[in-house]
């Protein structure tokens, strides 16, 4: 029998190292060292803008690779965290989600020793999320029909006789309730705490003039283009993108609903440190200016506004305008399920 040399520890380790070096970079377990994080965003134009303004520069600065997934979804986040199988490290979050996600323990607390956001506007601060952008929503209308006559404020939108036309609103209660109150004449400063009964009465009044209760954001403007609606609730960025390709559509900057584009880290992420560093990166003023230039949403630093390209700046909402309304997610937190259920019931009748 030949003399078999027993495997030494050193030869095994040496062999493994050689294999690791020989294998291509993409099969090395980079995530184990926090060299790769997964971010879920809504994709589309905003996803592209974030790739250019945030993700690629972050990788360049830190060596941490960023992989994106499409479609943030609170139910999927809940499932990942509860099963302790967290696949997404960072997620974009809607206004209404942040308090609920924090309450349910789905997000990591923001590490203030890493994330510096002292100068940011107060509306963009939350213990469990950072506010990277300010978006604005309001009324959009076609410029090639109805002789250009369109409602520019919510009371005008609610005036079906004065401004005849098919209206589009969202099929969810958040934003819609606030709009209804403003349509009924409540000034922005007095919308919260919402008078729910008054809002539903106002909704009842406009119901016959609403042809679409829209589920998907993309549909808001698509229905105007397709001549299915005349006036719709939508976002500045949607109208800006359409005007850029000469679609006859315009937008009213009066009485806009302002919201924050939130970003948070999933509770139990294996890359907590890298995730916090990324959140800190999104709160960098220059990065926010770049993102604003590319996306059309506003930065969350008041003094960064002046640095945005003039062509983009005219599309940015005026955060200081008292007629604009910042969404109050904290007011919604304890009420959202009950009011959303009531709203869905109301839609069916």
């Amino acid at each position: 029998m030949p003399d078999l040399q027993p495997l030494s520890r050193r030869s095994v380790i040496g062999g493994l190292t050689a294999t690791a070096i020989a294998s291509p970079a993409y099969i090395r377990p980079g995530w184990a060292q926090g060299k790769r994080i997964v971010i879920v965003n809504s994709g589309g134009a905003m996803g592209d803008a974030k790739r250019k303004a945030l993700y690629d520069p972050f990788t360049k600065a830190t060596g941490i690779e960023i992989v994106t997934a499409s479609g943030p979804d609170l139910a999927k986040i809940k499932a990942q965290v509860e099963r302790k199988d967290v696949e997404w490290d960072i997620t974009d979050l809607n206004d209404a989600w942040v308090p609920a996600a924090a309450r349910l323990g789905l997000l990591e607390k923001i590490d203030e020793s890493i994330v510096n956001r002292a100068d940011a506007i107060p509306q963009s601060k939350h213990d469990y999320a950072v506010g990277g952008t300010v978006y604005a929503a309001g009324i959009a209308f076609p410029t090639n029909r109805l002789g250009g006559k369109a409602p520019k404020t919510w009371p005008e939108f609610w005036d079906a006789k004065g401004f005849p036309g098919r209206r589009g609103l969202r099929n969810r209660v958040t934003d819609t309730l606030e709009i209804a109150l403003m349509g009924d004449g409540v000034p922005a400063s007095q919308v919260y705490p919402c008078d729910v009964e008054r809002a539903f009465k106002a909704l009842e009044r406009i119901k016959p003039a609403v042809s679409h209760w829209i589920a998907q954001t993309a549909q808001t403007v698509a229905l105007i283009q397709g001549n299915e609606t005349d006036f719709t609730y939508t976002y500045t960025t949607r109208v800006k993108d359409l005007q850029a390709v000469n679609v006859p559509i315009d937008y009213s900057f009066k009485q806009n609903i302002l919201g924050i584009g939130w970003i948070g880290a999933l509770k139990g992420t294996r890359n907590r440190d890298a995730a916090m560093r990324f959140l800190a990166f999104t709160m960098d003023k220059d990065r926010q200016v770049e993102l604003s230039n590319l996306s059309g949403d506003a930065p969350t630093y008041a003094d960064a506004l002046a640095k945005v390209d003039p062509a983009t700046r005219k599309w940015l909402p005026n955060i200081a305008d008292p007629d604009n309304l910042f969404v109050n997610a904290a007011w919604w937190d304890s009420r959202i399920e009950e009011l959303n259920t009531r709203f869905k019931e109301w839609l069916l009748t």
Partner: peptide, 20 residues
């Protein structure tokens, strides 16, 4: 239309919107 909500749409509502 707004009234055409079926069982499966209700499941979706409770899963993703109401988180119940």
């Amino acid at each position: 239309g707004r009234q055409d909500m079926m069982f499966a749409n209700l499941v979706d509502f409770y899963t993703r919107e109401a988180l119940n």
